Amino acid sequence: MKAIVFTKYGSSDVLQLKEVEKPSPKENEVLVKIDASSANPLDWRLMRAKPFLARLANGLLKPKNTRLGADIAGRVEEVGSNVTQFKIGDEVFGEKFETGLGGFAEYVSVPENALAMKPSNLSFKAAAAVPLAALTALQGLRNEGEIKSGQKVLINGASGGVGTFAVQIAKAIGTEVTGVCSTRNLYMVRSIGADHVIDYTKQDFTRNGKQYDLIFDAVGNHSVSDLERALKQNGNCAVAGFTNMARLFEISWKGGRVSRTGSKKIGMMKTIHTNKEDLLFLKELLEAEKIIPVIDRYYSLNETDKAITYLETKRARGKVIITVA
């Protein structure tokens, strides 16, 4: 089968389309013939080994895991001996974030509990946009943010892959949502449900005097003191992204101190945990059209390098899709 591999760290030039062995599913796995995948910042960070800490997990000098791609959507080709929830021909979506990636390929083996039936109203391409980004948004808002209906919620980075899902999930839960994005994306962020929008090129949401019950920061470009100023008493801030290592350490250390000594909580969200319950929750929201994937561009599997290069510009509106079938 064909798959994207990288045997050294670097720019998207290191990505190669190669013939590799087709996987065989283990007893608790499902072999999926992939129709589409999607690119995430995770992919270019692993590809470039940035931050440098990524090398501690995937090899100091060269990658131990040479595969990329967390999100997948396709049809079940084969099932392991202990699989009970899927059969050959089922249309599924899910992700490989916790089990070695490999979505940029024609086939992949996926644990049964990391898959769900594809939403009936979505194409494979639209379904592939969902898993990692939407799970990040959901778990950040719910687990770290402790989101509740009626709250005032701000989404920083509202036009990106994670941010577009965060806006819609927060609205579906019944909150008043403010989205922060650039001028070119104001209309789009309003169109997916934001009650208010802030153009970050003209206004700093941490210095306009307004405060929020919950801030979900998908960018990580503000200091802890800035975020603290924008939070109400007993407010929570869940940070899902970071712009550099200094900011990551500041949010982890200083944010932790603020959380321990005051009424406000600020911190990096935990690494997402793939589970069928959350995938099924997202499936329900998608089928009810309470959330709709926002897709910017499509690339073929042999154009994965171009897709990653575009994603690295940080200008993508919503998701970037890799078509395989």
Rank of each mutant, 00 (worst) to 15 (best):
N40R: 13
Q85R: 11
D90I: 03
K62V: 00
K22I: 01
E77F: 13
L61N: 15
A57V: 10
K125P: 00
A70P: 09
M47V: 01
S37Q: 08
Q85C: 06
E98H: 07
K118D: 06
N58H: 09
E77H: 11
V79T: 11
L115T: 10
A73D: 04
A39G: 13
E27R: 13
I72D: 02
A49V: 07
L68H: 15
K26W: 04
K50S: 04
N40Q: 15
K22T: 07
A39D: 12
D35R: 10
E21M: 00
E95S: 12
R55Y: 00
R48E: 15
E19V: 10
K87H: 09
P111N: 12
A105L: 02
L31H: 07
L122R: 14
S81W: 03
K26E: 10
L31W: 13
K64C: 07
A57Y: 15
V79H: 10
N58S: 01
P25R: 12
S38D: 08
S38N: 09
E106N: 08
N28D: 13
E19M: 09
N82M: 01
V14T: 03
N82I: 00
V110E: 09
N28T: 03
L60V: 06
V108D: 05
R48P: 02
E78M: 10
F124E: 04
L60S: 04
I34T: 02
E27W: 08
N28P: 01
N28L: 02
P119L: 02
E98V: 03
G89K: 00
G80I: 05
N113Y: 15
D13G: 00
Q16L: 07
V76M: 07
R75Q: 05
E27P: 07
R75H: 01
E91D: 09
G100F: 10
S38E: 12
N82W: 05
A128Q: 14
A105W: 00
K96V: 00
D71P: 06
L46V: 06
G69N: 07
I88H: 15
V20G: 14
P63E: 14
A70M: 11
E112I: 09
